[in-house]
């Protein structure tokens, strides 16, 4: 039996299984189905039972991480790997023999590549920069000199830089470059000076290679 005979069956299995599990459980689609499909396909490829299990587990972990980004991407990945393994497989007999060196090498490559990919996925989504006003006033007395404090925290596991800009009623009043170490939090003071009575708006922008943040504060200055 060649690949062409099995393509519809495998695609149906992947699609129906993923669809059914997605609607019956919150957790199972990310754990059970990828493991089962990949184990099935690995067994077909006859690299030995234990080693099939290892490589399937490794690929399933990667697939479940991909599902966090896109279920479709994960399904395509499972289907693609399943098809390749199935295409090169020979029988459905469980194989308990000792794996050959080539088979060990192939599985080792699968595990290492999966490991690298998982690491890359985790690192990519593992941080963020946070910015907020610290105890901001909503009203000020006319003639009172106001200082607004903004906290910026780097929750990435590595150093991050940002350009901080502050605008009062649309006029730039501060531009500052900051570099924050891993998990470092810093407070920046923005001096507004004495404000005229009425409504004012303070806008603070933070921009860096990680993205951008914007804060707005409405201030009422009473006479």
């Amino acid at each position: 039996m060649r690949l062409s005979n099995h393509v519809p069956l495998i695609l149906l299995l992947v699609g129906a299984g993923m669809g059914a599990l997605e609607q019956t459980s919150k957790i199972a689609p990310f754990l059970v189905l990828p493991s089962l499909i990949l184990l099935f396909a690995s067994l077909r490829a006859r690299p030995g039972l234990a080693i099939s299990f290892l490589s399937a587990l490794s690929l399933a972990s990667l697939s479940s991480l991909m599902a966090r980004e896109s279920t479709l991407l994960s399904s395509i990945f499972i289907a693609a790997v399943g098809l390749v393994l199935y295409h090169f497989g020979e029988t459905m007999h469980l194989d308990f023999r000792k794996p050959t060196k080539t088979e060990v090498a192939i599985v080792a490559i699968i595990i290492v590549l999966s490991g690298i990919s998982i690491f890359a996925f985790v690192r990519r989504g593992s941080g963020y920069v946070e910015m907020y006003f610290v105890s901001p006033p909503s009203t000020l007395e006319s003639g009172q000199s106001a200082v607004i404090r903004v906290a910026i925290a780097n929750h990435f596991g590595e150093e991050k830089s940002l350009i901080l800009r502050a605008y009062l009623d649309g006029t730039a009043i501060l531009t500052k470059t900051l570099t924050l170490g891993p998990d470092e939090e810093r407070i920046v003071q923005i001096a507004l000076g004495r404000l005229d009575p009425g409504d004012h708006e303070l806008e603070v922008l933070g921009e860096g290679s990680w993205g951008s943040l914007k804060l707005k504060l409405n201030l009422e200055v009473v006479g």
């Binding site: 946070e130 910015m131 006003f133 993205g211 914007k214 504060l217």
Partner: peptide, 8 residues
């Protein structure tokens, strides 16, 4: 009230 936290 104003948002206590922000992100893009």
């Amino acid at each position: 009230r104003d948002a206590p936290y922000t992100e893009g």
